[in-house]
Design a protein around this nucleic acid. Structure first.
Lengths: 151, 151
DNA sequence: CTTACTGCAAAGCGTTTGCATCCCG
DNA sequence: CGGGATGCAAACGCTTTGCAGTAAG
């Protein structure tokens, strides 16, 4: 299924997300609505500071961003990414269309592109056979992007 | 080529490593020799604290472990791993036998096993075609190990 | 009205830095 | 001896926590 990035599509994701919050006994507050809107409409992944910076001034404290993202991750609504630069990043996780994807990060400018492919799902089965359960994986690529090579 | 974990094999790796240090104008000091011995002989990857804890008391300060591993990474003698728990880990990188490998980390006990396979090298070529250079990747699996499932 | 959520301030923790001293080459 | 390496202490940046006040359901 192709992504249409229409307003309606975003709105529908947003509403589904609120339903999940209700089921999980998480409260629907202004800060959380604002954060989810940004996570759904923009691409991300965002660091705490990046997401906080995108919020309208005064919506909430940076600490609330930390606490909300922890709660949203727990509820399965966002996914945490680690790119080894000392900050966590978060992106919206669409439970209806949770196709695994990964990222390519420029070593210089830290720009993040999404790679819409995943060849390693089969390996997870192998690891389950090794006796692990609740298995997941991360796959991140690093390099210097074309733009940074010129500088 | 099969790994023999004999003393001779370790000794030979150790000596080659000292050669690299000389070529790179890095000095061969007691703390560095001790760290390299541990990295070569034990499996790792180790956090700074873990490596420091394995050193004989008084060999050096924890700060020296940080600075030395940074220098060794720069020289290509160790590889840094990030498992998203807030600490970097380091493992010895054998330039003669630098077969890419990855890890499976238990979500509970944090035990790290090595997976001697890599199916994604071909993807790196794809990313180079996208315009990136100096490309590398990380692939880590997470799960709950058999032992922790019992508890 | 109950209790989750929030703001503010402070603490925590892994990591980095400044500077004087040390010692490898 | 000259410049890299080290120890100690202090700073740093990201994240977490304590607590009192606020607001969702």
């Amino acid at each position: 299924m192709k992504h249409s990035h229409s307003h309606d599509h975003h709105q529908s994701k947003f509403n589904k997300t609120l339903e999940v919050l209700k089921k999980t006994k998480l409260r629907i507050t202004e800060p959380r609505k604002a954060m989810l809107k940004i996570l759904i409409e923009e691409h991300g992944p965002f660091t705490m500071e990046e997401l906080y910076g995108r919020l309208k001034k005064g919506v909430c404290d940076l600490v609330t961003v930390y606490r909300s993202l922890a709660a949203l991750e727990e509820a399965g609504l966002v996914r945490r990414c680690e790119f080894g630069d000392g900050s966590s990043r978060y992106e919206f996780r669409d439970s209806d269309d949770d196709h695994h994807h990964h990222h390519i990060i420029c070593r210089k400018c830290r720009k993040v592109e999404t790679l819409d492919l995943c060849l390693v799902d089969s390996l997870e089965r192998l690891i389950r056979e090794k006796g692990y359960n609740n298995v997941s994986h991360t796959l991140e690529f690093f390099g210097v992007c074309a733009q940074c090579q010129k500088v």
